[in-house]
Amino acid sequence: MTEHLSGKRMAGWVCGERTPEDERHVRECAQCGAEIARLESALGQFRESVRGWSDQRSPAALERVRTVAGRRAPARVWFRWPVLVAAALALSVAPVYKTVLDHQRAAQALADAQLMEQVDREVSEAVPTPMQPLAQLVSWDSTSQDSSQSSSQTNSQTNSQNGDVR
């Protein structure tokens, strides 16, 4: 009789790798035969116990998962396409929206600038009536011609009022 099967050969046997020599040995050696039978039996019992355990727990687990999924599945399944379409739309519209926004901002900035100019102008022009003569003495405008004209007019008026004649 050949020597007993090693652990590796026994594993091979259980996995279906059996040489004629192994088969002959297992037939003849009660010890190896018993050990292989015990191992195969244990593996079979283990498989059945796992399947039994799983069969027992599986429906409840599936029910639990379905219950949870039932709460969130509509959102995931039925609303998936609308959400995706909305997101795609938002992404495609974003550059256009940005351009429009930029234009709006530029227009707003221009309008603000114009408004401030107008305010400055009105403030500069809004001199109380009693101060008008003085205001006319001061040149608010940058055009020196206008200022010199108004200045000469003012001077002539003043001079005539005072009776000065040149």
């Binding site: 652990g7 026994m10 594993a11 191992l39």
Partner: peptide, 13 residues
């Protein structure tokens, strides 16, 4: 894995 299982099940080698 089988070797470990076999030892646990009561393998003599």
């Amino acid at each position: 894995a089988l070797e470990a299982v076999r030892r646990q099940v009561g393998g003599v080698r």
